[in-house]
C-alpha cells in the first residue's frame, strides 16, 4: 500500500504527509513535480505549501507541472487523490474539483486549530470516522475561503460532495466557527465519485499528542483502509461514495 506525495518548488508539507502515512502503516514517498510517470501508487497526495510562491493565484502555476498530466490520468483511471491546503487549490485550478479558494473573509493569514464535522463517513478519507464526528484540525492559510456559484454549491450539497464542514464543539454551525468565510462552512469537498478530495485544514499536522490533536489519524487510517478495501475485490464499494438518491 504505497502513497505518493506530489510536491513543487515552494511546497512545505510533503515530509509531514509522508510521515503521517507511515504513522498509520502506509508506505509513502515524495514525488518531485518534474516526474512525468507515476507507477505503483495506490493513492496520491498533493502536498500543502506555497507552490511557485503562490504567484498569479495559489496553485495556478503548479497546475502546469509535468507530473500533473500523470495525476489527471491516475485520477481518471479511478485512483485516489487527496489535495491538502495548496493541494486543494491546485485541484480546483485544474478543474478536478469545482469552485475556487478566495482570500479569507477577514483578510488574515490564519494559523490556528479549528473543528470540523464529518458530513459523510463513507468516503475513502473518512470511513474510520463516526457520522457527524467532530475532528480537531489545524489550518494555516490566507486563501481558503471556498467559493462556487450557487448552482455548483447546490449540486455539491445534493450529491453529498461536501465531506466536511467547519463547526463548533458540538458539531453546530455558526459564522464564528467558520475561520475563513467558506460558503456553507465547507471545509472539504470531493468529486462526484468521492475518490478526489480537497481540504484546506492539515490532517498531517495533527498526528501526535504533542501537537495538540491526533484527529488527523482518522483521515490517514481511512485512506489506509480504503486502499486495503480496494485491493480485496469483495469490498471495493467501501472506497467509492454511493450516489445519493
Amino acid at each position: 500500500m504505497r502513497v505518493g506525495v506530489v510536491y513543487y518548488p515552494g511546497s512545505n508539507c510533503e515530509q509531514d504527509a509522508v510521515w503521517a502515512c507511515q504513522a498509520v502503516g502506509l508506505e509513502a514517498e515524495t514525488i518531485w513535480h518534474k516526474r512525468s510517470t507515476l507507477q505503483g501508487y495506490d493513492a496520491l497526495i498533493l502536498a500543502g505549501g506555497f507552490s511557485y510562491g503562490d504567484h498569479l493565484r495559489c496553485g495556478a502555476i503548479a497546475r502546469f507541472s509535468p507530473v500533473m498530466a500523470a495525476v489527471e490520468r491516475f485520477a481518471a483511471d479511478g485512483g485516489l487523490v487527496l489535495g491538502i491546503c495548496n493541494g486543494f487549490q491546485v485541484l480546483t485550478e485544474m478543474g478536478m474539483l469545482p469552485g475556487a479558494l478566495l482570500a479569507n473573509a477577514g483578510l488574515k493569514f490564519r494559523c490556528q486549530d479549528l473543528l470540523m464535522r464529518v458530513e459523510r463517513n463513507d468516503s475513502p478519507y473518512t470511513n474510520a470516522c463516526d457520522p457527524g464526528q467532530v475532528l480537531r484540525m489545524n489550518m494555516a492559510h490566507y486563501q481558503g475561503n471556498y467559493f462556487a456559484d450557487p448552482e455548483t454549491v447546490a449540486q455539491l450539497e445534493e450529491n453529498g460532495q461536501v465531506v466536511m464542514r467547519f463547526c463548533g464543539p458540538q458539531g453546530e454551525r455558526a459564522p464564528r466557527f467558520n475561520p475563513n468565510g467558506s460558503i456553507h462552512d465547507i471545509a472539504a469537498i470531493s468529486d462526484p465519485s468521492g475518490r478526489i478530495m480537497g481540504l484546506m485544514p492539515h490532517p498531517e499536522r495533527v498526528m501526535d499528542p504533542a501537537l495538540g490533536s491526533v484527529d488527523g489519524r482518522f483521515l490517514f487510517e481511512s485512506l489506509r483502509d480504503a486502499i486495503a478495501a480496494r485491493q480485496s475485490p469483495e469490498a471495493v464499494s467501501v472506497a467509492v461514495l454511493p450516489q445519493q438518491v
Binding site: 498569479l56 493565484r57 495556478a60 502546469f64 469552485g99 475556487a100 478566495l102 467559493f147 462556487a148 456559484d149
Partner: peptide
C-alpha cells in the same frame, strides 16, 4: 489557460 480563473 492561465491568466484568469473564470470561476471567480
Amino acid at each position: 489557460a492561465l491568466l484568469a480563473n473564470t470561476v471567480t
